[in-house]
């Protein structure tokens, strides 16, 4: 259980996608968010689906892992699809029962919206499935680097992220320990009405907060002792390396965009 939370969604494998620089993956995923909205007919959706399918197969991530990311939003997808099916009144009338009317345009619209959502979520999941959280943090820090000019605390943000990642397993272990200690004193975290259960977590949360503050204080001291004085003049061990495949991936994405422009209505 612990293992899952620590590495986030990351699925360790050696694929061209895993080997890509986190910066190019971030740029690509971000770009993809926009070009999905370019598709507006069967051909363009077809092109997008093909592109996404090829990317997924390249990543060597088994589909069930992607499905895990999709599960929480499936309900939303079905709901928006139905909403469009019932509310759009365009094209031929396909079915009528009482006040319920379903038009051809509505069905098509519903399918498109659902596809759009599924594609979006799959591609962003693919980013977190093929990139470790710490690499994503590094990539973000580099990409947002220029914002430092406008006094945005990019370095501090990235450090905060990496320290959070570092302490997640520690805090989980601690949570388990405190939970056991309170259970040994008769606390019950698993049964009872919702309101009672929320209250039952106070004996868990207060000690967690107290210890986290103590940790933060000690960590700050340890960092200072090791010469930490902000991002100024700092060098980095973790180096990002931009390869040909990264440039290639972005060119592919540009071609995809171009074709979407050409093929859309």
């Amino acid at each position: 259980m612990l293992q899952n939370v620590i590495i986030g969604q990351y699925y360790p494998a050696s694929s061209p996608l895993h080997r890509m620089d986190s910066r190019s993956k971030l740029i690509a995923a971000f770009f993809y968010l926009f070009i999905v909205f370019l598709a507006n007919n069967w051909v363009t959706y077809g092109v997008l689906i093909a592109f996404t399918a090829v990317t997924i197969s390249l990543s060597k991530v088994p589909f069930r892992f992607l499905y895990k990311g999709l599960k929480p939003i499936l309900l939303l997808v079905v709901f928006t699809m139905l909403l469009h099916i019932f509310l759009t009144k365009e094209g031929d009338l396909l079915y009528k029962a009482g006040f319920l009317e379903i038009y051809e345009g509505g069905v098509i619209q519903g399918i498109f919206i659902a596809l759009r959502l599924l594609l979006l979520v799959m591609m962003t999941s693919l980013l977190t499935l093929t990139t470790t959280p710490i690499d994503i943090t590094d990539g973000l820090e580099h990409l947002l680097g220029p914002l430092k000019k406008w006094k945005l605390p990019v370095h501090e943000f990235a450090l905060m992220m990496s320290i959070s990642l570092r302490f997640i397993p520690t805090l989980l272990q601690e949570t388990e320990k405190i939970m056991k200690a309170q259970m040994a004193r008769g606390a019950d975290f698993t049964s009872g009405p919702i309101k009672e259960r929320a209250k039952a977590f106070v004996p868990l949360l207060v000690p967690l907060f107290v210890s986290s503050f103590k940790r933060a204080e000690e960590l700050a001291l340890a960092m200072e002792a090791r010469g930490y004085r902000g991002g100024e003049g700092r060098t980095r061990l973790r180096a990002l390396e931009w390869h040909q495949r990264d440039t290639f991936a972005l060119i592919l994405l540009a071609l995809l965009t171009l074709s979407l422009f050409l093929l859309r209505n």
Binding site: I163, R166, R215, L219, A222
Partner: peptide
């Protein structure tokens, strides 16, 4: 030992 380990 935990509260001085900064890196991941």
């Amino acid at each position: 030992p935990d509260n001085q380990f900064v890196g991941t």
